[in-house]
Write a protein that binds this DNA or RNA. Sequence first.
DNA 1: TATAGTTATAGAACACCGTTCTACAGGATG
DNA 2: CATCCTGTAGAACGGTGTTCTATAACTATA
Lengths: 213, 213
Amino acid sequence: MKKVTPVKKCERIAAVDLEPALLLAAKKLLTEEGPSALSIRRIAASAGVAPMGVYNRFKNKSGIIEALFRQGFVDFDAAMSSVEFPIGTEKNLQKEYLKSIEAMGMKYREFAIQNPGIYQLMFMKSVPEFAPTIDAVAGAFNCFGTLVERVAWGQRAKILIAGDPVEIGQRVWATCHGAASLEIVGITKLLDVENHFRMLVATLFQGLLRESK
Amino acid sequence: MKKVTPVKKCERIAAVDLEPALLLAAKKLLTEEGPSALSIRRIAASAGVAPMGVYNRFKNKSGIIEALFRQGFVDFDAAMSSVEFPIGTEKNLQKEYLKSIEAMGMKYREFAIQNPGIYQLMFMKSVPEFAPTIDAVAGAFNCFGTLVERVAWGQRAKILIAGDPVEIGQRVWATCHGAASLEIVGITKLLDVENHFRMLVATLFQGLLRESK
DNA sequence: TATAGTTATAGAACACCGTTCTACAGGATG
DNA sequence: CATCCTGTAGAACGGTGTTCTATAACTATA
């Protein structure tokens, strides 16, 4: 028998583009019913296919969840990067800088509460059996770079205190994450959570300012 | 046949005190293998009993998890309350106050990283199918009262800025939780995470101080 | 002491889960 | 047309939470 070069997957045309349909179904289940609804059978059924349909497109359950994880960081990065940043008008620089920082904080919160399922998947290990691969984690850390750059920018402009911008960026991130995650899981007695978030970020940056009050 | 008053459960003497054994087994599984190891069958087997042994002591899986949840907050409260608080020596009051705040923060982190399974159960919805009852949540909020009191104390001593102590307490909590939870799930590039935690709390309180720098 | 009533127990059973295996249908290649 | 490969559905395996059933053990009464 003659040996035949296998037909490459990309050369075949699928009847329907199943992979996006599966991802969409998974995201929908995660958003509407939470992590425990994320089962292979339910994802497959939502996309109108047998469980094997998932295994044909992804390695296993972790595979499809990792795809959600990665897409989440892409969307997150887009959201954060959409926040305007001051150019450098000299006069009200500090004021404008802090305004854009506040806007970033509020954008962070907005992403978290509008995509709680994805947010928990990204930052809160909400699917116990899922651990992202090293590669996916590296991709996730890319968005952190944007934050670090903006911290470093504030330091160069003599607005923020000196120090490792990565470490200070992590302080900012931890602060936003703390408030957002407590809000998502509903651990708060506050009525105006949005204002609380704003005040928290403002307090942190008050402590990060180079100049005295 | 004569109607007999049922024997009350508390009057019976169990062969072994199974309930604590089950809770201990559950805690051990959670700590050593994570939330996905928390199955009725494994808990029961660890305690040397059939699955029904769990249902005889607790309503269902949520029941035994809620017991872990409640015990977690008791332990947490004990840890936090163990931190010394300044009496009021007038002279170095602010310094001592901030020192005790730092100690509380570090105690918070210590609890989280020494009991990551329990911490995630308490604050991070790590068991998707478990939601604490209203009663359990109310108990959980008790520990928050300690923090609020200490914030209010700092306000009365003119150390901290004015404002709703509950809201400000939540700022402190969110900050500690953000750093601790990111550390637990391993989302950080920092080498000295302990120092980062310390600096973060210090930064927040720098922003909460009434006096200028 | 003997009997009746209650409880806790083990084990089977049900529906679900992730995953793997098997058999089959459809299209591309020779 | 014959062959090969791929994607599919469905069954199957061991796991899960939960419920049901039958039995054993224990308490309380006659």
